[in-house]
Simulated assay, not measured.
Amino acid sequence: MSGLSAVFALTTWQIVADGPLRRVDERVGRALVGHGPAGLTEFLADLGNMQVALPVLGCAIVWVLARGERRAPLVAALAMAAVPLLVVPLKEWIARPGPLTDATGYYPSGHAATAAVAYGAAALLLSPYLRRAWMMPVAAVLLTVATGIGLVLRGYHWPLDVAGSWCLCGVLLVALRVLGRRAARDGAGAQPPK
C-alpha cells in the first residue's frame, strides 16, 4: 500500500509542479491519441462510466448479500462511495487541462478510478466463492487496463491521469481487502446466540 501511495504522491507532485514526468506524459499522450479503431477505443473508455461499472459492482454486492455476507459488501460499497470524495477535490485542486481541451479537472481520472474500484471490489467480493479464485482479479485487472487504454487512445485523459487513479484506487482496494479479511476472521470466530 505504501508503494502505491508513494507513486501517487510522486505522480501528483510532477503534475502540479509541471515536472519532467508531466512533459513526457503529455508527449506520449499526444502520440497515442487517435490510435486504434474508434468504436473499440470508445467502448473501452465507456467501461469506466458509472452506468457500466456500478451495475457490475451492484450485482456482485447483491450476489454476496444473498449468500449471507454483510460486512464485505458494505465495505465494497463504502470504497466505491469514497471514489468521488477523493477524486473530485483532487481534480479541482490540480486543475490539469485535458489532452484535447483547455478545460481542467483531468487528474486523476474519474473514469479510471470508477473502473478500478468497481471491478476490483467486485472481484474481491466474488473470488472466495469460485473454484478458480484467481479468475476474478485477472478479469478486474483486464477491464481496468482496457478502460485506461480506451481513455488515453480516445484523448479523454493523459496516461498519468489514468496511472494516478490506479494508484489512488489501489490503496482503496488494498484497504478493502484487509477489512474484508478482518470481517471474515471476526465472523468465523463469532458464536451463534444461545
Results as ranks from 00 to 15, higher is better:
G187D: 14
I15D: 00
C169F: 01
T12Y: 01
L176A: 08
V56Q: 04
W158H: 13
L47C: 02
A76H: 06
D18L: 14
L4D: 05
H157M: 04
L21E: 02
P84S: 06
V117N: 11
Q14Y: 00
W166Q: 04
L86G: 01
A190T: 15
F8V: 02
P97L: 12
C167D: 14
C59S: 13
V64T: 09
A116S: 15
A118D: 12
G29S: 10
A183D: 09
L86S: 00
V75E: 06
D25V: 05
L32N: 06
G189P: 03
P137L: 05
L54Y: 13
A45C: 07
A122G: 09
Q14M: 02
W158F: 11
C167A: 14
A190K: 12
V33I: 14
D25K: 09
A45P: 04
Y106S: 11
A188C: 03
L143R: 01
T12R: 03
G19C: 09
I149L: 13
R27Y: 02
V75R: 06
C59E: 00
A115K: 12
K194G: 12
V62Y: 00
L124R: 04
G34E: 11
A79W: 13
A79R: 10
L172K: 09
V162S: 11
L126G: 02
P89G: 06
N49C: 01
A113H: 07
A146D: 04
T114Y: 09
K91L: 08
